[in-house]
Design a protein around this nucleic acid. Structure first.
Lengths: 224, 224
DNA sequence: TGACAAATTAACCAGACGGTACAATGAATG
DNA sequence: CATTCATTGTACCGTCTGGTTAATTTGTCA
């Protein structure tokens, strides 16, 4: 029906059947790829399926990304960038060390929960022994900030005597990451084996407090 | 060359070209499958590759296991059984609560480190949202012991006043698991982003102590 | 406006891979 | 030793899937 689907535009010239939009196409592909790889893994994801969920075609994927592995790598990088950008909001400098650390832990815990796709991609990348992250240049720079943020809080705490000296900032960060990450990554099997209780709303609130408490208790020099 | 490869045995009758060994074949397949799935994931693993690494043929895999998914499920179950069986050694009843808990944590930490294949299978199963563990009957029973072991120690500690009351044994177990699991599961990406220092021999010794300390500090009512 | 590069479409392909058909060989039973 | 069934070997198949070929359309700029 109708003029809208005609091959001729109003001016009588042949109507453009598609518009060029390289950046749009690229980011569209990347977003779909991220979701698909996150759901199915590198080998589990299907290029045809990614293409189908895109507004463009399979050919475009190869045009812009070369092959499946490079697409995966770009998706991984995009995921890291997206997540890191969401971490910048945090302003802790003005808080006393204990409050700052607690807020950092709680933020990390929440942030991981909010980004299950990212967590799953990192799991997948670990299954691949980090082979794709290793060959990614852009990523290496995003590490420093996380450590230095912990370091700043920790140093201040040691100065005020609230935190005990001799701990490693990297190890403290490791501890925070481990608990926040595991909460998302192993939800399925843990729930199956030990019940859903920790993954209800109440259970998650409990764990959030527990994780913060445990990190604080670990770092503090005095009790309470 | 020579008589050994002849089609006739010494007695002149046709030589058996193969011996029957159902259980051997089955467990052989299972062991290879476990390694392959652990390395490559469910979709990444190749039946032909598994068959090649077996002393038998692809045909046997289908004869005994039906299809790829069922093979994966059996491998997963086998992994759980193998790991759980290695946990039985532990005898903690005679120890005072703090020592018992520390030993339990250290044991769990070491045990996870010793079984990276198992960890990887669990990661993979979580990628699949636990779909295969969910439909496995034999597994459900293996959960109780882990919790009750923590529970026994914790109760005793609360009685003696060494541990503070009001904590959840499941949540304590969760905490121990999280730290021990993450140490293995995320080694690749963590090392890439934050350096190898925590995964040297010294680094692992440090983390082991840190994990035990942190759990103890979390549970204890009084400091130190 | 015309030529050239960038972007996009549509159809196609070769190999990989999960799975099967069928015959042959072993062991157990009577 | 004949029968029977579980086990194993060989060869094969259909489809899925990553990747490609080639032609067409759109934007740009001299």
């Amino acid at each position: 029906m109708t003029t809208g689907d005609s091959a001729l535009a109003d001016n009588g010239r042949p109507k453009p059947r598609w518009k060029q939009d390289p950046e749009g196409v690229r980011s569209d592909i990347l977003a779909v790829a991220l979701a698909e790889f996150s759901n199915n893994g590198l080998s589990g994801a299907r290029i045809d399926e990614i293409a189908a969920k895109t507004r463009t075609s399979k050919r475009m994927i190869y045009y812009y990304f070369g092959d499946k592995q490079r697409l995966y790598q770009k998706a991984l990088e995009a995921a890291y960038r997206k997540v890191r950008s969401g971490e910048e909001e945090l302003a802790l400098d003005h808080l006393p060390p204990r409050d700052a650390l607690r807020r950092l832990v709680e933020f990390t815990f929440d942030h991981h929960r909010r980004n299950p796709d990212f967590i799953r991609l990192v799991m997948i990348e670990n299954i691949h022994h980090g082979d794709y992250l290793r060959h990614s240049d852009l990523i290496r720079n995003l590490n420093e900030t996380a450590i230095s943020r912990v370091d700043a809080i920790y140093r201040k705490g040691v100065e005020t005597g609230e935190f005990r000296p001799g701990l490693s900032p990297v190890a403290i960060h490791w501890q925070i990451s481990a608990l926040s990450f595991f909460n998302v990554s192993n939800r399925a099997t843990f729930s199956l084996l030990f019940g859903e209780e920790l993954h209800t709303e109440d259970g998650q609130a409990l764990l959030r407090r527990q994780v913060a408490d445990s990190v604080l208790r670990f770092v503090q020099s005095a009790p309470l």
